[in-house]
Amino acid sequence: MSAKIVTITSGKGGVGKTTAVANIAVALASLGARVCCIDGDIGLRNLDVVMGLENRIVYDIVDVIEGRCRLRQAMIRDKRLPELYLIPAAQTRDKSAVSPSDMVRLGDELRNEVDWVLIDSPAGIERGFRNSIAAADQVLVITNPEVSAVRDADRVIGLLEAEEKGSPSLILNRLNPSMVRNHDMLSAEDVLDLLAIRLIGVVPEDENVIVGTNRGTPIALEPKSIAGQAFRNIARRMCGEDVPFLELDNKGSLWARIQRMTGRK
């Protein structure tokens, strides 16, 4: 079977690209798929840290491209899931070490090895971004419900359309339902209204995501976490399943209504 190559990008930094790649990869691998993540942020690598694989790095993506090792040697196997791999970025080089055609070749080589290739794009719209999307069959744009992040996502979507990459799908990350309810935050509808692309997932704000990131244990491994559930749902939607969106706003529940009436919320 030939792998599908998916790039996750955002334009703006710090909206959760790396976290999303780690979690979706873990979720896909938990569904039994063979997954390989590529850290496209050469010079500022951190996908390895988020996945807890930092201490296993021997070879990196630039070593593969420059022929210092075979592809298999640079694929670090995850310690929890047997069919999850990571190709880390080089820390001592920069984006110019890789060209878009290098990425296309690397992607084609990986197609025979796994079912999914997830590429973590760096922030920005320059060389690193171009490299990351060069090989992609599908692009997921991730954004936060913040005006600046949405503006950058809009720009990236425009660039992707110009590159004839087809319409990307949207992940809305770090949504805080109670802030939306008080009209202090853009709602999913507001964001979709502007960006006008397919929504593939809404991830609620959750402190445990940060804890997981720091420990190198992606939250999608926690069965009880709602953010983890959101990432697992994204993975299932990527596989073509029709999964309903999580009910994040619990204002409809009886208890919440009582709380509101008594002024406790």
Binding site: R151, D152, D154, R155, I157, G158, L159, E161, A196
Partner: peptide, 11 residues
């Protein structure tokens, strides 16, 4: 000039 699409940020 007839533009038959949404103009995104940066255009």
């Amino acid at each position: 000039l007839f533009v038959n699409k949404t103009l995104r940020s940066g255009t």
